[in-house]
Write a protein that binds this DNA or RNA. Structure first.
Lengths: 148, 148
DNA sequence: CGAATCATAACTATTGAAGTTACATGAAAC
DNA sequence: GTTTCATGTAACTTCAATAGTTATGATTCG
């Protein structure tokens, strides 16, 4: 399938929202992400269901972050998106009768399980506040560059 | 796209080949894998290009393992298949101008790089001989179970 | 009311592996 | 040398899940 970039997308959206007061509309976010407002609503809807953001309709409506930036981790966001499959590679057959295939699956499953555990652990260590801080550093660096 | 199961497939095929003398035809392998002989040829072709197997046409033709089972690792096979993307999740945009997206990508790239390094390291530790030995253990266990 | 905004359904586009069909090529058996 | 068995390969269709698009409905506020 196509590469799943929803985690990347929601992070991008959340950090833009964090940088400004008041709500951001799906249209505005779509422009930041160079995509479509419907895609923004569809994806952000998962975060609303998870209680990380709220959405309001009508005038002055849009999306707002309700969670604490220093609490929400990439892991929370991944979970909110429904824990999509992380790997593009996998077994041919999940529960085969063939003993050869069972031996193959056991070895692959073990390796993938370890890599997944590491990845999810890293996700659990990174908060939105960390990313916002990293953005601030990059922003300051760019300003400094312009001054030269 | 569909989940890539070629590594799983070639492992399954190689272990079946290792369990018998003489070559195995694409047809026979396709039956083991419950797939199509053309798919077998297409996938095994990568291993032929990497020098791990040979194929012969005509009567008594088919596929044979030429490499040493105790030398070939999952990593070799993964490389032979062209190092396909391991992750189904990734960045929206590889080299964005947006500083927010750069911060997001940096965090995600770091986590994915660590998980990929671990996965490839594990792949590098597992040989075909290891899998064949594991199969032998499973086979003995099944025979024993039948005796009861 | 009317404009702004989200909610949602119902599509199409995308992407690469997997599966299929068809035919060409080469090697061994007879 | 013809037949048979087998690989080689091109050209398609199928599949699965996200991304993108279009259209319509439902709220909210001025």
């Amino acid at each position: 399938m196509k590469r799943d970039s929803r985690l990347s997308s929601v992070l991008h959206a959340l950090l833009h929202m964090a940088e400004r007061d008041g709500p951001m509309t799906s249209d505005a976010l779509a422009k930041c992400l160079t995509t479509n407002p419907v895609v923004v609503r569809r994806t952000m809807g998962f975060l609303r269901d998870a209680g990380i953001v709220t959405s309001d309709r009508g005038h002055a409506g849009g999306w707002r972050i309700t969670a604490d930036l220093s609490v929400v981790t990439l892991r929370h966001l991944h979970d909110a998106l429904g824990e999509p499959a992380l790997f593009a590679v996998g077994n041919r057959n999940e529960a085969p009768d063939c003993l050869v295939e069972q031996a193959v699956n056991a070895a692959l499953d073990q390796s993938f399980a370890e890599a997944e555990a590491l990845l999810l652990a890293r996700f659990g260590e990174i908060t939105l506040a960390d990313l916002a801080a990293d953005f601030a550093v990059r922003y300051a660096a760019r300003l400094k560059q312009k001054d030269l």
